[in-house]
Structures are given as structure tokens and as C-alpha cells.
Design a protein around this nucleic acid. Structure first.
Lengths: 227, 227
DNA sequence: CATAAATAGTAGTATTACTATCAATTATAG
DNA sequence: CTATAATTGATAGTAATACTACTATTTATG
């Protein structure tokens, strides 16, 4: 699996960047090191100046790739959702039972990364932590409508859409597939954050397996209750 | 009800502010107008300078009340959770059936404000929109652990705790009360945001009643499924 | 009416978030 | 292998942000 994964490239909406970071070494370093720095000091503390110093380059060079740090955040979170979607499609094909497919999907989201800790130059562990604690800042902004129109959130929307389809396979008359799945995906991220920082808001303590089980149980109970 | 509500004062952890904004006209204006400005231009665009200009005062005077704008955000969101808790306690007392109490609680969170649009000098409609789109930024920061230690999130935690207790009254052996309730509270906020900005992630379109019904159904199905 | 408290007014600093320009380096195409 | 295009490096500069500090003036209170 690892070998195969290294063959593919995750596509990110090209309007997110000025110059494709995959097209050069500097570009790849910008992605790799911004993930590292944001993971360490948080998105608010992260600046292109700090990144430039680490990369032994200048702010100006980074601005040739991304208009601002918010776009860079959209880039790396979109990349993550693209990667997860790839993973999801892979893990659910050839599973005949729709209920089983939904369970696998929820497990995929809850586990986040796993067998491939480093995907080419991207540290998936750090990226996953960023998604947990920073990804909602990609859309919780006054520019959300413009960004959405440009398609910046299509990766996330596609993922939610795909899992919602699995729900509809189980129960085609279920009216709340998107609400249920976006609640679960956001819920998984939040519960992980709460386990780390606000433990009284959760009952699941760093156990991705258990987290997945809870949300599977919740999903199936909710779907069936609607009949 | 409105008259009674105007009698009480919502308490916010006093470490959040330097000087109690309730103790002066300027303080109250800081709260009232920061809610207005954040609602209009978003938390990122909001600065103490802009607030000072609107209030015909100087940055320095605002800094005597709040160390920085992040603390002010914590203040106003804490205030909201305190207000909601008050509402919740009020609306669930004297209801004998635990299931009914849980339903009322979820409805209270989903409706957010309603019969009291303006609570003394606070515009609850604007505050509710801020809670929907900005409140998670109060804890999604690298300072979260320090802030949590200071008790800055106790209002939110108390609210989740209270509703979790209602869950346990229905089913004392349920293991995931906090996870379920924090998922629902966050879910309600997210679904409202999605309805406004990313509609493909939700099935509930600006209908607080329906939103509450969905999450009530989900809660009860999940609780019962665990038996 | 005195004096303490609060606010207004003015300055100033370090950092952020950029933009612009030109020189040096590196890639690529003929 | 060289011309030239593309990329990056280096330097500079601006407006805004996020503060801190100090003094003058106003307002409250005993």
C-alpha cells in the first residue's frame, strides 16, 4: 500500500496558490515546513517571515507561491481532505455491505493517518494535528463565501458527500445524511481536541478505535431511528 | 420573563478581564460595540483601534479593560454560555420527565436566543451569530491549556455538563454523555454556519425547530441504542 | 471642595503583512 | 554550449497591528 500511495499525487484547487508548490523544491519545502511550524507554534503565531528564516529564503519568495498564510492553510487542509478521500475510496471498494462500508469510512476519518506516517515530504502526523486544531479556521472567516465560490472547500465537501452517499445506500429515505456526516466528521476532530485540552467535554480519551465505534453506533442508531 | 431576565447579571470569570466592563459605561460600551463590530467585520478584522474610534475613545482606555482582543472574545462567548445556562435551567425546571427535559435543553441551544432579542445593552442576535462563527476561536489557540487552567471555559463546560446530566437521568449507564452533548452543541453551531455559507454540508436550512428535532432524535436514538 | 479614580490624549516600539525592484542564479530550448 | 527565460535572493519600504508608557484632563465620591 505504501508503495502505491507514493505513486499518486493529491490535487488541490489551483486557485488556492499562485504557483504550484509541487512544481519546485522550494514549493515542497514551503509545504513541509509550514506544516511543521504551524503544528509547533499554531496558525496565529505562524508567519511567512518565520517560515522564510527556517527555509533560508526570503518572504518575497514565499509570497510567489501563496498570497497569504490563510490560503496556505486552505492548501494544506484541502490536501489533507483530498488524501483522506483517496484513502476512503480505497478502503471501501469491494466491500459489499453498505453498513460495513459506512463503518470503514468513519474509522478512516477517526484514524486520520496510520500506516503511512510520512507521505513523500509531508508529515501526516503533524498535518493531522493541524487539521484537528486549525482546519476550521480555513472556513470560519469573512471571506468564506468568496472562497467557497472559488471551490476552495470542494475537497471537504466531496468527502462529506461521499460518506453521505454511503448513508443513503443504507437508508435511501434518510433526510439528514449531510447533517449527520458533517456532524460526525467535525465531531471526531473536536473530540480529539477536547481529549487533549478540554477533557471534561469528552468521554473518549485518545482512543481512535473507541471514537470510531461511538460515532458508528450513533450513525446507525440515528439512521435506523428515522425509519 | 423579559422583566425577570433584566434583573439578573451573567457572571464571567474575573480573570478574563483587567477591569470589569460591567463597572462603567465605557466598559458596557466596549462589550456592546465589540459585539456589533465583530458581527459585522469578523474577529480577524476587529481591532481595539477600530473599536476606540467608534466609541470616541482611545485604544489605551480599552486596554485597561482587556489585555487583548482574544480575552474579549473569551469574555463575550463566556457571557453567552452563561446566559444560555441560565435560560436552560429556567426552562427545564419543573419538567418531570427526563426525556422531555433533554428535548427542551437541545431546543434551548438550537434556538439560541428568541424572546429576548436585546438583553440590557447586549444585542443577542449579533452575539449569537458571533458564537456560531467565532466562538471556537476562543479555545482553538496555543494558549488553550493556560486559559483552561484559569477557568476561562468553565461556562461552556458547565453547560455541556448540565445537559450531560440530563442524558444520565434517562440512561444512567450511558458511557458517552459528554461526547454526545458536546457533539450536539458544536453540531448545532456548525449546522447553522453551514446553512449560511456551505449549504452542501447540511440538510437543514435555517430552521432551528427542525435542527433541534434532528439532534433530539439523534440523541435519543444514540442513548437507547447503547442499552 | 479635595482628592482619588477614570478617561483622554499623545507618543512611541516591535512585529506583521504585505509590495516593489533589481541582481544573481538556475533551468531549458535551439 | 550559449542565449534567454524563469526562478530565487537580497534589499527596501509601507501601512497596519498590537501593544506600552506617560501626562493631562475630566468625573466621581467622601
Amino acid at each position: 500500500m505504501k508503495d502505491l500511495i507514493n505513486q499518486i499525487q493529491i490535487q488541490v484547487n489551483e486557485k488556492v496558490y499562485i504557483k504550484d508548490p509541487n512544481s519546485s523544491d522550494l514549493g515542497k519545502n514551503i509545504i513541509a515546513h509550514s506544516i511543521k511550524i504551524i503544528d509547533e507554534i499554531g496558525f496565529e503565531g505562524f508567519t511567512f517571515r518565520k517560515l522564510a528564516i527556517v527555509l533560508n529564503t526570503k518572504e518575497g519568495s514565499i509570497y510567489r507561491y501563496f498570497e497569504n498564510k490563510h490560503k496556505l492553510l486552505i492548501y494544506i487542509t484541502s490536501w489533507y481532505w483530498g488524501w483522506l478521500e483517496y484513502h476512503l475510496v480505497f478502503s471501501t471498494t469491494n466491500i459489499p455491505q453498505p453498513e460495513e462500508r459506512l463503518k470503514i469510512a468513519i474509522n478512516t476519518v477517526a484514524r486520520g493517518h496510520e500506516d503511512s506516517e510520512i507521505f513523500s515530504f509531508i508529515n501526516l502526523g503533524a498535518l493531522h494535528r493541524i487539521v484537528v486544531s486549525e482546519s476550521s479556521k480555513a472556513y470560519l472567516t469573512k471571506e468564506v463565501d468568496r472562497a467557497n465560490k472559488e471551490g476552495f472547500y470542494s475537497g471537504y465537501k466531496r468527502l462529506v458527500g461521499r460518506i453521505s452517499e454511503l448513508v443513503l445506500e443504507i437508508e435511501p429515505n434518510f433526510q439528514y445524511a449531510h447533517t449527520l456526516i458533517s456532524t460526525i466528521v467535525e465531531g471526531i476532530l473536536h473530540q480529539k481536541y477536547f481529549a487533549d485540552h478540554l477533557p471534561s467535554l469528552t468521554d473518549i480519551d485518545h482512543d481512535d478505535q473507541k471514537l470510531a465505534e461511538f460515532y458508528c453506533m450513533m450513525a446507525l442508531a440515528t439512521i435506523k431511528s428515522s425509519k
